[in-house]
């Protein structure tokens, strides 16, 4: 039916133009706040693009991590950029960079056009890895091919990626040890109107969806990352509503939560030598349960790390509710 193809390509053309315009606005726009909004919308559009290109797992991840967490972090940066600005400093003026404009524009344009041509002209003839991956995915004990690649065929990538996430948090703590900056979202003195009710409504839904995404990860789009990011977003919501009090004493529960993912996965890697010649091999029986256990640990670690990165403190204590003003700072 040419009409549906026409509509489909119309949809894609508009989507791509929107992406390019949003990216351009986010980067060359004048106000930082406006750029952050543009970048968040760019993230949303990317999620729709991933859905359009037939990878729903990524649409979920991009929505939860790309648009959700990254957007919240950028808003934090915007807020911090100004609230800690000393009065003498003028608004965020942009000093000319080392590279002059007349050089940067043609250079990046040439790179872009060259890459666009190259990316278009590379023949899409698959190769040994795609064939092996698609064939192996059918017979794999995990029905979701992406989760089977992430947690079995290329398990060390996922493991080391958890180390990267942990390093981001440790790096932020190094900075915190040097200089304790004021909390960005002080506990509101008067409880926010309507926010507690939204929180009461959203929390069960988010928890349910998060656990569902985690559970679905093994046989349908979803998985530890999307679920972890979603629970992270819930944590961000609690922090915004003032239900968390950031403290700087080392909390053992927080430390356990952020390290359980990497710890369990590394332990599995070492113990796998007991039943296989090479590390990171799954045992014959009980592999499915093992993967679920590891994914659950990853989910907890990702959620806890993302929330702590957003709040910017060493650990968090949940407060009963916001109605008693003047909570412990």
């Amino acid at each position: 039916m040419p009409v549906s193809d026409l509509l489909a390509s119309g949809f894609d053309v508009l989507l791509c133009i929107g992406l390019l315009w949003l990216a351009w606005q986010a980067i060359t726009g004048t106000g930082l706040f406006r750029s952050v909004v543009m970048f968040m919308v760019f993230g949303l559009m990317m999620a729709v693009t991933w859905a359009r290109l037939g990878s729903p797992d990524l649409a979920l991840a991009e929505a939860a991590i790309g648009a959700g967490i990254t957007g919240a972090l950028l808003l934090n940066a915007c807020r911090a950029a100004v609230s800690e600005m000393r009065s003498d400093e003028q608004p965020l003026r942009d000093r000319p960079s080392g590279v002059p404009k007349w050089l940067a524009l043609p250079l990046s344009l040439a790179a872009g056009v060259g890459l666009a041509w190259l990316m278009h002209s590379i023949p899409r003839d698959g190769g040994p890895t795609p064939e092996a991956a698609i064939k192996a995915a059918e017979t794999h004990f995990l029905d979701n091919p992406i989760t089977s690649v992430l947690l079995d065929f290329r398990a060390i990538d996922t493991l080391l990626e958890m180390a990267v996430l942990l390093l981001a948090l440790v790096g932020a703590r190094v900075l915190l040890d040097q200089r304790r900056l004021p909390a960005l979202y002080p506990v509101p003195d008067h409880p926010m109107p309507m926010l507690p009710s939204l929180l009461a409504m959203i929390t069960p839904v988010l928890l349910l969806t998060g656990l569902y995404l985690f559970w679905a990860g093994s046989h349908a789009p979803g998985g530890a990352f999307q679920a972890g990011a979603l629970l992270g977003a819930l944590g961000v919501m609690y922090q915004l509503a003032g239900r968390f009090t950031p403290t700087h004493e080392p909390g053992t529960v927080n430390a356990l939560l952020i390290t359980v993912g990497l710890g369990l996965f590394s332990l599995f890697a070492c113990l796998s030598l007991l039943w296989a010649p090479a590390p990171l091999s799954h045992p014959e029986q009980g592999a499915y349960a093992l993967v679920l256990l590891i994914e659950f640990a990853l989910m907890l670690s990702i959620a806890a790390t993302l929330v702590l990165l957003f709040v910017g403190s060493r650990s968090l204590q949940l407060r009963r509710s916001t109605n008693h003003p003047g909570g412990r700072q």
Binding site: M192, P193, M194, L195, S197, L198, M201, I202, V205
Partner: peptide, 16 residues
């Protein structure tokens, strides 16, 4: 339902 709830709260907060 969730969209309605989220929209009302957000609209109220933005207006305020």
């Amino acid at each position: 339902i969730l969209a309605i709830f989220a929209a009302t709260v957000s609209a109220f907060l933005i207006a305020r």
